[in-house]
Computed example of a mutant assay.
Amino acid sequence: MDGLAIAFDILTTTPAVFAALAGVAWGIVGGALPGISPSIALALLLPFTYGMDPTTAIILLGATYVGAEYGGSIPAILINTPGTNAAAATVIDGYYMHREGRGGEALGISLQSGVIGGIVGITFLILFTEPLSRVALAFNFPAYFALGILGLTVIVSLSSGSLIKGMMTATLGLMISTIGTDPMSGVTRFTFGQPELLTGVEYVIVMVGVFAISELMMTANTPDWGKTDARQTRIKLPSFRQWRKLWRAQGIGSGIGVFEGVMPGAGGSIAAFMSYNEARRWSKEPEKFGKGSEEGIAFPRPRTGTWVSGRVQLSALA
Rank of each mutant, 00 (worst) to 15 (best):
L172N: 00
G173Q: 06
L174R: 08
I179S: 03
I179A: 04
G180N: 02
G180I: 09
P183G: 09
P183S: 13
M184P: 04
G186E: 06
G186Y: 02
V187Q: 13
F190V: 15
Q194W: 12
P195E: 14
E196V: 14
I205R: 03
M207V: 05
V210Q: 14
F211M: 10
I213S: 11
M217Q: 09
M218T: 15
A220C: 15
N221Q: 15
G226L: 14
A230S: 13
R231C: 00
R231N: 05
Q232D: 12
Q232H: 12
T233P: 05
R234Q: 11
K236R: 08
K236M: 05
P238T: 04
S239W: 03
F240Q: 00
R241Y: 07
Q242C: 11
W247R: 12
R248H: 08
A249C: 07
Q250E: 14
I252Q: 03
I252L: 11
S254M: 04
S254Q: 02
G255C: 08
G255W: 01
I256E: 06
G257M: 08
E260H: 06
G261T: 03
V262N: 06
P264K: 07
G267N: 09
A271Y: 06
Y276N: 07
Y276E: 03
N277S: 07
R280N: 09
R280A: 13
W282A: 05
S283Y: 02
